[in-house]
Design a protein around this nucleic acid. Structure first.
Lengths: 205, 205
DNA sequence: GCCCACCCTGTCCACCGGTCCAATAGGCTT
DNA sequence: AAGCCTATTGGACCGGTGGACAGGGTGGGC
């Protein structure tokens, strides 16, 4: 039986946690019997406390729960040795899933944050530099690029057509080609792909 | 029953794999029925092939197996979207463990690599974190904000609904409210509004 | 000349996205 | 208690969107 220990600010047990792990134990302070998974739900997140808690239980995966997942917190937590970071209101099934992943040596971050972390890590470890131009734009033909830029400004197909003086149908054609080349499914993702930027916020749940 | 598909250079099945997953299927090329876990054992590692294989099976965790684990390869693989990287001669129990971790949303890298990745990622992501928050976000209610962020990540209404565990209808309601508050007409402009203003590309034509 | 990439356009259609009208419910303020 | 905000969901409507299927036109390379 896997023992789950939740460290919550006021020792309160979320119904969802109980639902996910009926035999879960909740405490305001870490300590006591060694759990199989330590869920850290104290808010706000205190690096020193978390760090010592992790250090005190070598081998025990620690998952940080946050009512409002913030990327900085997640990075801090992971950097301190946490094995997961997710929303404290995640569904029971999600929590169970996270538990399975971390108890089997996995790291659980949630898709978006995961990709960010991976991106950052590989950028740094592979030692390269980010290209100045959108890596995607040069994959496109001049016309596709023009349409993509119009769309990236928030224009509708009709508006882009008017600006470029072509029919809406043609806009769709170029746009469709751009979607395929960039591997995205719609205009919004195309914009996100062009602004390779930090796709924002994260949240594990 | 979890379906495991191994992609091996010559379609040869390692005894250990068969031992770990008796019903595993091996092929030289990806394709066919959608597996629950795709084990990529083609050597040498080809980024393009791996990338397309991952793209072809959205949602399916891909684990790269290497006869000679190299950190650079691991980083490449992870950067391309792989969910795990381990020795192709890992023990059956180890493989099973990896399978459990990745099928439950985890990332599996092995202790050393894991810590290295985490260190690099946190260094980079914590380095220059622009603490600036989107001025528009605080105009929104928590729920509207959550929906807006989902959409800003490129999610469809349906996807956002699933992630937030509400109906698509409710997503539309929050989104509509967000549009009005931010003075935009659709999701794309909302994204543009959230990202500190765009540079307004030239429009001479 | 032929092939190919690019540009342009058309129709049809399923699906998605945004809005209107309307309702229930909990929390908070007055 | 009454009023307001927020969250949630339903139904319906319709225009925007993206894909499938089909072209025609141009210019450059072999």
């Amino acid at each position: 039986m896997t023992k789950h220990l939740f460290i919550s600010s006021k020792g309160q047990l979320q119904a969802r946690w109980k639902s996910a792990f009926p035999d879960a134990v909740v405490r305001a302070e870490p300590g006591g019997e060694r759990p199989d998974v330590l869920w850290w739900a104290r808010v706000p997140l205190n690096s020193a406390e978390l760090s010592s808690a992790i250090a005190a239980l070598p081998g025990v995966p620690v998952v940080v729960l946050s009512p409002e997942p913030v990327q900085e917190d997640a990075m801090h937590a992971i950097a301190l040795g946490a094995r997961g970071y997710c929303h404290s209101h995640a569904t029971p099934s999600m929590l169970q899933q996270v538990a399975v992943a971390v108890t089997h040596g996995g790291l659980w971050l949630g898709p978006e944050l995961m990709s960010r972390v991976m991106g950052a890590a590989s950028e740094r470890l592979l030692g390269e530099q980010a290209p100045d131009v959108d890596p995607g734009l040069d994959l496109l033909t001049p016309r596709e690029r023009a349409v993509a830029l119009e769309v990236a400004r928030g224009a509708t197909n009709k508006e882009a057509a008017r600006r470029l003086d072509i029919t809406e149908r043609t806009v769709k054609a170029h746009l469709g080609a751009a979607f395929e080349k960039l591997g995205v499914r719609d205009r919004l993702q195309l914009v996100l792909a062009l602004k390779y930027v930090p796709v924002d916020v994260d949240h594990a749940a």
